[in-house]
């Protein structure tokens, strides 16, 4: 078990976003996370990555208690995340952005760090822009840079927050291939994405979040069949036919939780 959260609560002031959430993720799993806007998906990632401190509840990674560790310490233990709203280091070049991750996240030195930073750029197709300022990147390129930085920390647990939005079908295909290959190299992936089609084509498990609570959790096809999921999420985002085709894509029929 790489991640174990029990009874996590998180509120911003009086706004209780996550009233009490428990989730366990096994090493090597590929978990898709969906849910309506404002469901608390990004907040959940913030709590896992250490950006936010949970008000209560416990969070463990590979048996180690993470509460009390800040984001940097969690990064050193293998948690990497992308920001939904990209936060590149605007004053640095694209390459320097990934070099930060390789140096401080992965703890590499010299040539090893440079090589790892370059490899992350190569994988995400940013190598040609390596020496350009990060401030010159478009939004889509910035999202790719988020991914590159996360990869360059050499994570065990990769948290992806809407990295596919705005991409063409071909680009989504490339991205899926990349993330699947990262997952197959042993990295556990949690991926928030509104592109349910894309997500269920690769995820082996789907978690649906609504109002900070897990309303369904299991094999994608089965989860998408749950009436509550259709109502709270798919109903608003997908037409019925589309929902059916998504379900057909997903395959499987086992629901947990």
């Amino acid at each position: 078990m790489i991640l174990e959260m029990v009874d996590i609560r998180k509120a911003y002031g009086k706004n209780v976003v996550i009233p009490g959430l428990s989730l366990t993720v096994n090493e090597g799993e590929f978990v898709g996370v969906i849910g309506p806007n404002g469901a608390g998906k990004s907040t959940l990632f913030g709590v896992i990555s250490g950006e936010h401190v949970a008000d209560s509840g416990s969070i463990q990674m590979a048996g180690e208690n993470l509460s009390g560790l800040d984001a940097a310490a969690r990064c050193h233990r293998g948690v990497a995340r992308t920001f939904q709203i990209p936060q590149p280091f605007l004053g640095l070049s694209v390459y320097e952005n990934t070099l930060v991750s390789a140096t401080f996240g992965a703890g590499l030195h010299g040539e090893e760090a440079r090589e790892s930073a370059r490899a992350a750029l190569l994988k995400t197709g940013l190598l040609t822009l390596a020496n350009n300022g990060a401030d010159t990147l478009t939004l889509l390129q910035r999202k790719r840079l988020e991914l590159a930085r996360a990869i360059a920390t050499q994570p065990r647990l990769l948290l992806l927050d809407e990295v596919a939005g705005g991409l063409t079908d071909a680009e989504v295909g490339e991205l899926l291939e990349l993330i699947v290959s990262i997952n197959q190299s042993g990295v556990t992936v949690l991926w928030i994405e509104h592109l349910v089609h894309a997500l269920v084509s690769v995820a082996e498990r789907l978690v649906v979040l609504a109002e900070g609570q897990i309303v369904a959790d299991g094999i994608p096809k089965a989860v998408l069949d749950v009436p509550a999921v259709r109502e709270t999420y798919l109903g608003s985002d997908l037409e019925d036919d589309e929902a059916d085709s998504v379900v057909a894509d997903a395959g499987g029929d086992d629901v947990r939780g």
Binding site: A71, A72, C75, A80, Q87, F89, V100, G105, R149
Partner: peptide, 11 residues
Amino acid sequence: DSEAAASASGV
């Protein structure tokens, strides 16, 4: 440039 991103990158 970004404390949040720096921290998330292990700084």
